[in-house]
Design a protein around this nucleic acid. Structure first.
Lengths: 277, 277
DNA sequence: CGATTATTTGATTTCGGTCAAAGTAAGTGG
DNA sequence: CCACTTACTTTGACCGAAATCAAATAATCG
C-alpha cells in the first residue's frame, strides 16, 4: 500500500491529476507600486498605500518594519495574482523573490524521481513564502487556489534583516510555526489511519480558512482549497481512499458536502473526535 | 497498514519497546562550571574552558557569540550527560532550559492518545535543542544514545538574542535545516515503500554519524543510534517490517550487520539507489 | 548460567492500493 | 439549447504490502 501515487504516475491518472484550468490571462495583472500614493492617517502615517490594510503588517513579517522601512521595501515590491495551478517556484530553480501570501492557499510539494508526490506544506495568508539563505529551492511552490502575493527581491529582504533584527525574529517565529506544523503532519503520515488523516485534514483546513472559526463555534463551513488528488498527495493516500473516507464521514453525518468543494461541518467536536490525537 | 504502533500499544509490545536500561546513576554527573578556568591561546583568549573545544562554537549557535558573551552565558551553563532512554523534556511540560547536543543522538517524539508514537526528529551534535518563544513543549525529547548536553536557561538565551542578533540568525538557520529535514521525512513517510524508508534511514544515519563520511568515500560504518522499535517509530512502520527489510538488505549484500547495531555499508551508492529519491 | 529484553522469522489478516467503470460538473462548439 | 468533451469524483471488485499474531532465536547483563 505504500507506493501510493506511483501508480498514478505510471497510469493515466497522473495526467488527470495534473489538470489545470485552461490558463486565462495567466500570470495576469501585475502591478508595480511606487510609494507615491501615501494615505495620511493617525496610525498609518507614511505607510505605503500598498501596505495600509495588509494582513502581513499585522500578523505577518512586515509588522517588524517601521514606515520608513516599509517604504524602502515597497519600492521593489510587486503585488500579483496567480490562478489555481500556477507554479510559483520550481524545484531546483533559483529563487530571486520571496513573498507574503495575501489571500488564497499555496502548496509546497516534493516529487520523487518516479513521479510520486507529497505535499509538505500549505501556506495561508499572511504566511511568508520562501527559504532564506539558500538560493536554490528544494521544493515546488504552486497556487492551490487563486492566490494573491506580495513579493520582494530576496536581497532586499536579506539586507533589511541585517538592519532590522526584529524582521529576522518574525521570520524565525514563522519558520518555527511551520516546523511545528510539519511535525504534526509527520505524526499523521506515519501513524494515523486513512480515516484519521481525513478528519485531521478537514479540521486543519477549517481552522485556517473558515472566516468564522474560533473555539466557541461548534460548526464550520468552508471551501476546500484542494482537489481530491491534492488531498491524497497531502495525506499520503490515493484519490480513491480519500473519496471513500469523505463519503464515509458524509454517511455518518459528520460533514455535508455540496459541489465537491463546499464543506459543512455540523459539530467540529465530532470531527475532532475522529482525528486520533 | 496504518495503525502501526497501535497494536504495539494494546498488546505487550509497547512494554517491550519502552524498555530502558535500569537507570544507573540516572542524570548523574552534573557539573557546574564557573568561568574561573580560562586557557590562554592565540585563538581562544578569554573563552571559557568549557567552550574552547566545543563543536557548538564552530558549527553550532554559540559561534555567534564573542568571548565576553560566552563568558556571560557560561555562568549559567551546565554540562551534563544522560544515558540512553533518559527523558530530557516531557511533552506538555514547561521548558526552562535549552541545550546544545555535544555528542550522541537525541530523539523528538510525539505520541497519540492511544499510544501510537512517531519520532519527528533526530538531533546530532552540534544541534540546538529547544523551541524558543514557547514555554510549553509540544513533544518529548529523549536521549536515543548516551548524550552529552550543554544547557543554559531559556531566559539567558532569549536575553542574549536581543543583544546579539547574530545568535538569532544562527538559530534561524538551524531551524530552517530542521524544517528541510522534516519535509524530507514527510515525503518518506507519505510516499516511500518500507524498503525505501529503511534505505533512506540508513543513509541519513551514515551521513550524520559516520566520522569518516564524505562524498568521496564509497563505504561507511557506524553504530545505529536507534533500536528496531525506534526505527519503526521513526519510519511509521512496525518492528517486524523493519527487521524484515533490514534482513532483505543484508541478503542482497547491500549492508552487513554485527551485533544488531553495528552496520557496514560496502557501497553507499548501492544503498542510495534503493532510497527512491 | 539464567533471566530479561531484542530481534528475527513464519503464518495469516487487513487496510489501503490498484484496476476498472460509471457518475458529475463545467465548458465548448454546433 | 444540447450533444460532446474533458476533467474530476465516486463506487465496486480484487490484490498485495505491511500489519498482526505467534513463536523461535540471539544478545545482554547481573
Amino acid at each position: 500500500m505504500a507506493p501510493a501515487s506511483r501508480t498514478a504516475a505510471s497510469s493515466g491518472q497522473r495526467g488527470l491529476r495534473r489538470y489545470r484550468a485552461p490558463a486565462r490571462v495567466a500570470g495576469g495583472r501585475r502591478e508595480h507600486y511606487s510609494c507615491s500614493i501615501v494615505r495620511e492617517d493617525i496610525h498609518t502615517t507614511g505607510i505605503p498605500a500598498l501596505c495600509v490594510s495588509c494582513e502581513a503588517r499585522h500578523r505577518g513579517i512586515c509588522g517588524a518594519l517601521n514606515a520608513e522601512q516599509l517604504l524602502a521595501l515597497a519600492k521593489s515590491t510587486k503585488r500579483q495574482k496567480a490562478e489555481a495551478g500556477k507554479e510559483l517556484v520550481g524545484d531546483s530553480t533559483s529563487v530571486e523573490r520571496f513573498s507574503n501570501v495575501l489571500s488564497g492557499v499555496a502548496k509546497l510539494t516534493k516529487t520523487l524521481s518516479d513521479g510520486r508526490q507529497q505535499i509538505v506544506g500549505l501556506q495561508f495568508a499572511p504566511d511568508f513564502l520562501g527559504r532564506p539563505f539558500q538560493s536554490e529551492s528544494t521544493l515546488t511552490v504552486e497556487a492551490a487556489t487563486e492566490v494573491e502575493l506580495c513579493s520582494f527581491p530576496r536581497q532586499a529582504l536579506e539586507r533589511m534583516m541585517k538592519e532590522q533584527p526584529d524582521l529576522e525574529h518574525r521570520l524565525l517565529e514563522q519558520k518555527l510555526r511551520e516546523l511545528d506544523q510539519a511535525r504534526d503532519w509527520m505524526v499523521a503520515l506515519g501513524r494515523k489511519t486513512a480515516a484519521e488523516k481525513i478528519a485531521s485534514f478537514l479540521l486543519m483546513i477549517a481552522r485556517n480558512i473558515d472566516p468564522a472559526a474560533g473555539p466557541e463555534r461548534r460548526d464550520s463551513t468552508f471551501e476546500l482549497p484542494l482537489s481530491r488528488a491534492e488531498i491524497a498527495d497531502f495525506l499520503g493516500l490515493t484519490i480513491e481512499t480519500v473519496s471513500r473516507q469523505i463519503t464515509r464521514l458524509r454517511g455518518e453525518n459528520v460533514i455535508r458536502i455540496e459541489n465537491n468543494r463546499h464543506v459543512i461541518v455540523g459539530d467540529i467536536g465530532r470531527l475532532a473526535a475522529r482525528a486520533g490525537d
